[in-house]
């Protein structure tokens, strides 16, 4: 059992190449917690903006009639990976974990696996 602060701390210390992480409410776009980031990566702005990414995908799936749930969304930049993991669970209505990774140092498969583990520990 972990609170959000320890979960986010774990995300940035355990996951290689992590630049910052945020726990985001995707209805309002508010970051409930952030860690890392800095002047190059404003995580509260990233949180609000990526909310639109998630909403657009959820809407598209409705339009396509897909009955599945989104596990994660990967955005690949020239030098970074941005990973969005939608949280499941009774209390996780509309939350996602957002993780920015340095592409040079990160192992994507490992990062996805570890993010999944952190979600489980958060026990939402």
């Amino acid at each position: 059992m972990a609170n959000t602060e320890t979960a986010l701390k774990e995300a940035t210390t355990v996951i290689d190449g992590a630049l910052g992480a945020a726990l985001v409410d995707y209805t309002s776009g508010m970051a409930l917690g952030t860690i890392g980031g800095g002047k190059d990566l404003d995580l509260t702005v990233a949180a609000a903006g990526n909310t639109d990414v998630v909403r657009a995908k959820v809407r598209t799936m409705e339009m396509l009639g897909l009955q599945e749930e989104i596990e994660d969304i990967l955005i690949t930049l020239g030098t970074q990976y941005h990973l969005i993991r939608l949280l499941k669970g009774r209390g996780a209505n509309g939350l996602f974990l957002y993780l920015a990774l340095d592409k040079q140092r990160a192992n994507l498969a490992m990062a996805r696996h570890q993010l999944k583990k952190i979600e489980a520990e958060l026990e939402i």
Partner: peptide
Amino acid sequence: ISAGELEI
């Protein structure tokens, strides 16, 4: 209710 959920 877990600590995480309560806090959020």
